[in-house]
């Protein structure tokens, strides 16, 4: 089972690397925002996994804050395009 978790960690890290590629390359700001969104979604389970690894449930609160707030940046960029901010 440990091997599976290690595999998951490697996959998540590779996913983060790929999204960073899109972040650097992205032709327009919206593509970069998609990369930011994906990075947030990768970081949340990584934070939860870190909490599991060090056995401290209070670390989950940080992941919870990201779950609640991370979409605001992307949505603000979208509303920027509508001249809504």
């Amino acid at each position: 089972m440990k091997t599976l978790l290690e595999l998951a960690l490697v996959l998540a890290a590779a996913a983060a690397l790929l999204s960073v590629y899109r972040l650097i390359k992205g032709p327009e700001a919206f593509s970069r925002a998609v990369a930011l969104d994906v990075l947030t979604l990768i970081t949340m389970p990584m934070m939860a996994g870190l909490a599991l690894w060090v056995r401290r449930s209070i670390y989950l609160d940080v992941a919870l804050v990201y779950a609640v707030l991370s979409f605001l940046g992307v949505m603000a960029l979208a509303r920027y395009a509508d001249r809504g901010v």
Partner: peptide, 13 residues
């Protein structure tokens, strides 16, 4: 705009 998104990623990491 791109710089703002980059700043968001930096704060996430």
């Amino acid at each position: 705009l791109a710089a703002v998104v980059f700043a968001g990623v930096a704060s996430l990491a």
